[in-house]
């Protein structure tokens, strides 16, 4: 009979690739982690109108009136216009008159993103003086 001792296999976990796995996990989490960055359209509101204080008068020529209707249609000085056309129109107007104040008037029942869209267009057109109002 064969009583030879069976050679026991040594069991080992290969650790050479352990660092690969660790780095893979590290890189995975590095790339997928999303920090909550706040970004948005900044604006400075006009100070509240004080009693007795003189209201700042803006020359009518220096005002561009942008109106956003309830359904999101936009009008520049009473004239219907598309958002893309608004941007180019305002850009030329600002180029002609750097003092231009854009009055962005949004209907109360209009959706917020129409206003943001218009504000974004105005920003792109280089209009710095924007006043928000509603009707």
């Amino acid at each position: 009979m064969n009583f030879r001792k069976r050679k026991r296999k040594t069991s080992g976990i290969p650790t050479a690739s352990m660092s690969d796995v660790a780095f893979l996990l590290l890189i995975f989490f590095l790339t997928t982690t999303k920090f909550d960055i706040k970004q948005g359209l900044g604006l400075v509101l006009p100070p509240p109108a004080e009693e007795g204080a003189e209201r700042v008068r803006v020359d009518d020529q220096n005002i561009a009136r942008v109106l956003i209707r309830e359904d999101g249609r936009v009008a520049l000085d009473e004239e219907e216009i598309s958002y893309i056309a608004l941007e180019s129109r305002i850009r030329t107007m600002v180029a002609e008159n750097p003092e231009l104040v854009v009055s962005l008037s949004t209907h109360r029942r209009s959706r917020y993103h129409y206003m943001i869209e218009a504000l974004d267009r105005l920003r792109a057109a280089g209009a710095d003086r924007i006043s928000l109002s509603t009707n």
């Binding site: 970004q39 359209l41 900044g42 604006l43 400075v44 943001i116 504000l119």
Partner: peptide, 9 residues
């Protein structure tokens, strides 16, 4: 008098 605003988007 909180005049600085930002519309996040």
């Amino acid at each position: 008098n909180a005049l600085r605003v930002s519309f996040e988007s």
